[in-house]
Amino acid sequence: MTSAHTLPPRVTDEKRGRKLLGGIALPVGILALLIAGSVLSEQFLTARNLTNVLINMSIVGIIVVGMTFVFIVRGLADLSVPAMVAIGALLALGLQPALGSLPAAMFGVAAASCAGLINGLLIGYARLNPVITTLATGTIVLGVAQAAVGGVIVYGDSPGLQSFLTGRLLGVPVIVLIFLAVALGGHLLLSRTTFGRWVYATGANPDATKASAVPLRFTKGAAFWMTATLSGFSGVLLGLTLQTARPGVGTGYEFDAITAVVVGGVSLLGGFGNMPRALGGLLLVTLLSNIMVLNGIATESQGLVMGALIAAAVALDVYLRRRGGAS
């Protein structure tokens, strides 16, 4: 009864804080970075550099779309991303001699998708801890993929696909178009479909959602399946653009994706956030790292900045939630 009376004003506070964080802070931050970037480096505001930023965003961006679902469904995070990226890239290139370029690429996505299905079953249906589960499946998948393709570095031989992906359509790099299509699809799935509603509800209050006849286990599992499939797809694109892949090719993608989602203000505690926010977070993070690279900041220092950013964003999220009395 006490909470019934004290809750409304606190939640208003939370709303205000969240509006500040997501509604204004994100665009303001991006704008500030654009200004800072053009002041700090002459190369920054060139079409070539900004195109590079977009291309860099695209590979991670496809993973961010999946990771956003994982966050909102209160699945914590998917740490099998590097393995899924690697399996996608390794198979897409390594199987080319046997299957041909396109079937090999599809096989890469399918393999990641199957591994994602295992993630989904273990996390959604067997209710295992997502962090430990994805860490374990990731390690296993990577091992299997390495064994399957044999060598350490795999080279591709599909110049046609490579030039298509790195080429442009109506002036926009094809890979960016692919990312935008995935992002739009993810956005619509999350905001306009029954499944999207289930995702929010599951993250907001799993008990009440289960009691409302929602297939809770399916919803949670599907978020992980999607993330793995998209990561595999992303890996395939990466492999085809580079025409070379090694098992470590996906390293760091999980961290980049998580950073983007968290900085975008999507709650690690579930039930809150949306696709535009997550992608805004991605843009901010990508710009920041681009500026640091252009200004010759050492890799170690870049890590420091990114680490601090993610810690600050999570702390702010938890703080706002506590104030809101939701946890």
């Binding site: 509603r197 509800a201 907001a204 209050n205 959602t209």
Partner: peptide, 15 residues
């Protein structure tokens, strides 16, 4: 088990 507090009234009712 009843409401998802952070969701809107609409989303709760339609669930």
């Amino acid at each position: 088990d009843g409401v998802a507090l952070s969701l809107t009234v609409k989303d709760n009712i339609a669930l």
